[in-house]
């Protein structure tokens, strides 16, 4: 029997993520997760519906995320997305969240919530 997947809105609540874009597109199930700061690596290995963990905050992460149809991006370690990144993400209805946690800690918590790679 397929397990029920956790929704992005629930992940945001449980991990206390800060939403940087508009809030109304968070009702999607997370299919898995991927951590990388190399955009080619994300293009090659991240899958549709995944939550993408990265320290990059420049606008090109939106292009990558949209092409890969990820559920959302979490920027780690108190880093902030650039203004232009938020603008682009909002145009694409792509949720971008930030966290004060490091990638290691955040992924550990995502695993605890039942999200895996």
């Amino acid at each position: 029997m397929p397990e029920e997947k956790i929704k992005l809105s629930e992940v945001i609540k449980q991990l206390n993520l800060k939403i940087e874009c508009r809030e109304q597109f968070l009702d999607k199930e997370i299919q898995g997760g991927y951590v990388s700061d190399l955009l080619s690596d994300v293009m090659a290995n991240c899958k549709e519906g995944y939550i993408w963990i990265t320290l990059q905050g420049h606008p090109n992460i939106v292009a990558v995320a949209v092409l890969k149809e990820v559920a959302g991006i979490v920027i780690i370690n108190n880093r902030k997305p650039e203004e232009e990144t938020i603008k682009k993400a909002e145009a694409e209805k792509l949720p971008i969240m930030t966290s004060s946690l490091t990638a290691f800690e955040l992924v550990g918590k995502l695993y605890e919530l039942g999200i895996s790679g």
Binding site: L38, L39, S40, M43, T54, I61
Partner: peptide, 11 residues
């Protein structure tokens, strides 16, 4: 910025 990993052409 996360570019230039040397994976573009191989990908």
């Amino acid at each position: 910025m996360g570019f230039g990993a040397g994976l573009g052409l191989p990908n």
